[in-house]
């Protein structure tokens, strides 16, 4: 579950995080609630703060004000050690640029997070690979894979350690339209199957439509998009 209240994030024009300075409030009293196992998508114009929100939620950045509770972790108060633990055990991240470890093969990449978290479940990983259709590439170097295949590996990696929440930052941004829909379908279905909360940032209407809830971000705040608006 993800619960966000009164979230504020200022970005000073010189990139310094200083709440005292007069900065631009990129996130301005944002509120968000996602139930466990649900999926949500966030859309918005470029530079509106979607990625910043994701960074805040995944503990990669600190808020200026407000509360962030992700899977019962009140991460707005966490120090670095606890954030490390949080990231290691509780969440998984899928990046736009895949960000796979190029010196490892597919299987090692996927198992990395699970090993790190100390809950390696080969069975689970095998299932993931089957589901994502990458089981027969397990020994290949990730650099040899196509974009779609790489992203699927990334998704598997994000899920290998059975996180409570998965954040995806424009996961289909680097993929073509056809691959894009296949991958996003997989992402949503896999998360649903594992009862993992999924928060996904995207600029694609089609991808956003796959989520249980769709949000739009403007002026530092989220607005829920009604299903009818979504379909248009």
């Amino acid at each position: 579950m993800i619960e966000v209240r009164n979230l504020v994030k200022n970005i000073a024009s010189s990139h310094r995080q200083n709440a005292q300075k007069n900065g631009i409030a990129i996130i301005d009293n944002l509120e968000l609630l996602i139930e466990q196992g649900q999926s949500a998508s966030v859309q918005g114009a470029s530079g509106c703060g979607k990625t910043t929100l994701l960074h805040l939620l995944s503990g990669l950045d600190h808020p200026c004000a407000g509360t962030l509770i992700v899977a019962k972790h009140a991460i707005h108060n966490y120090d670095e050690t606890r954030l490390d633990y949080f990231r290691r055990h509780t969440i998984g991240i899928v990046f736009q640029q895949f960000h796979l470890l190029e010196s490892l093969n597919v299987e090692d990449n996927i198992a990395f997070t699970a090993r790190l978290a100390g809950n390696l479940d080969p069975h689970h990983i095998n299932n993931l690979m089957q589901q994502l259709g990458i089981a027969d590439m397990r020994n290949q170097r990730v650099t040899k894979l196509s974009g779609g295949e790489q992203q699927r590996v990334a998704i598997a990696r994000a899920l290998a350690h059975k996180p409570r929440v998965v954040f995806a930052d424009e996961p289909t941004g680097n993929l073509d339209e056809h691959t894009s829909s296949a991958v996003s379908e997989l992402l949503f279905s896999t998360c649903r199957a594992l009862n993992t909360t999924l928060l996904l940032v995207t600029h694609s209407n089609d991808v956003a439509a796959l989520a249980d809830d769709a949000y739009h971000m403007t002026s530092g705040q989220l607005t829920k998009i009604t299903p009818s608006l979504q379909k248009s």
Partner: peptide, 14 residues
Amino acid sequence: QNISGVLRSIGVTR
């Protein structure tokens, strides 16, 4: 640099 970022985000401590 970016590999470091990835690893940190996965949960590797500093």
